[in-house]
Design a protein around this nucleic acid. Structure first.
Lengths: 211, 211
DNA sequence: CCTACCGATCGGTAGG
DNA sequence: CCTACCGATCGGTAGG
């Protein structure tokens, strides 16, 4: 028997699921600014106007809250960076599109504190534990994807034979990363433009024909 | 009347000054790993085997402790990066030496969590206040120094006339920054080598004669 | 989802 | 530098 839900469409998700998602949404915004370690259950509760144990019940430990927040930010990254970037054709075009999507996501201020993963990377790079490991995995996956596109580009003759794909990806990701930190630090989007220029010039230099 | 101090040389500094310096030393190490915001007076006290108020008395507020820790880290940076880098002749040689000194300081693990300023940059880029402002000033000063050397190099004909000194410094600093984060994240010094290679190649490309 | 509570720790103060 | 203390907040639990 089908239930009639015409008037209730926005409620296909249960209230509990919607609250859960709302908590994670606030948690992502807070953590992008102040860090995942500064997230506190009480602070989130106040921000959302619910009781502390009301928030706690959704996660059962602070670490699970942190890990779920990280996973939720991963979904945002996929939607805002991977999805638009992957629309480009494999190879050089896609490599450039992924870098540009990353820069655009920084420039648009998808997270108020800049790139969520740049924040937690710096925060957990020297701290062992499950968050460190998740961040390292995510970072490795992102670079791996870029390297794959660089190899595809090279096999297609779009990149010079002498180019090292791993080194190239390092040199493309570096200005994007710095653009994020400096644009947030100085509240100046011109740093994103510097990153964009660096990426374009590095790609043009590695390409077999002028871009 | 001169006091005889032959046996007491290491005590030219008073006990209070030595304790103060010892607290800051521990604070720098802790903050480079866990962040300046995670510094707590109680934690420092335990680490040093003194009472909480014993530590507190040296700084009178947490913010002063943080700002003094930041200033102490600045002195380390001057000693470990600026001083060796500035020994090189002004211009291209010095620009390269400053980048190399920065990479070496990362690779040597002067701070256990990697570059102290990379840590606090990411931590405070989106958080307003005196720490943010100090970090922004320090970052601006460092880039300004590098840009000055780039201009000197260009005026001396060591860099091509078409090179934008500000953009060049951005593109030199970016791989150093990423090298820091990735070498710490993956506990793998080969990322420092990637940064070094990127800096060398970028400088060689900007130079008027092959390096 | 709530109130009420636990022990631990926070930054900071008083008084010595 | 110490002990002793303050109110606030932490993560988490009990019981509903």
């Amino acid at each position: 028997m089908e239930e009639r839900r015409a008037e209730e469409q926005p409620r296909r998700r249960s209230d509990g699921e919607r609250t859960h998602a709302a908590i994670l949404d606030t948690a992502m915004r807070l953590a992008s600014v102040e860090g995942l370690g500064s997230l506190t259950i009480g602070r989130l509760a106040k921000e959302l106007g619910v009781s502390k144990s009301g928030v706690f019940a959704h996660f059962r430990s602070k670490e699970r809250l942190q890990l779920e927040t990280l996973a939720a930010a991963g979904e945002v990254f996929e939607r805002e960076v991977l999805e638009p970037g992957l629309k480009a054709a494999p190879g050089l075009a896609r490599l450039q599109a992924l870098c540009e999507a990353h820069l655009s996501y920084i420039q648009r201020g998808v997270f108020p504190g800049g790139c969520f993963f740049a924040q937690v990377l710096a925060e957990y790079d020297a701290v062992s534990g499950p968050i460190h490991d998740e961040v390292a995995d995510g970072q490795g996956g992102w670079f791996g994807l870029l390297e794959q596109e660089a190899r595809t580009a090279q096999q297609a003759g779009e990149l010079a034979a002498g180019v090292d794909p791993v080194q190239l990806v390092f040199e493309l990701a570096a200005p994007v990363e710095l653009a994020n930190y400096l644009s947030v630090l100085n509240r100046d989007p011109r740093f994103v433009e510097r990153g964009r220029r660096a990426v374009r010039e590095r790609l043009a230099q590695a390409a077999t024909s002028p871009a």
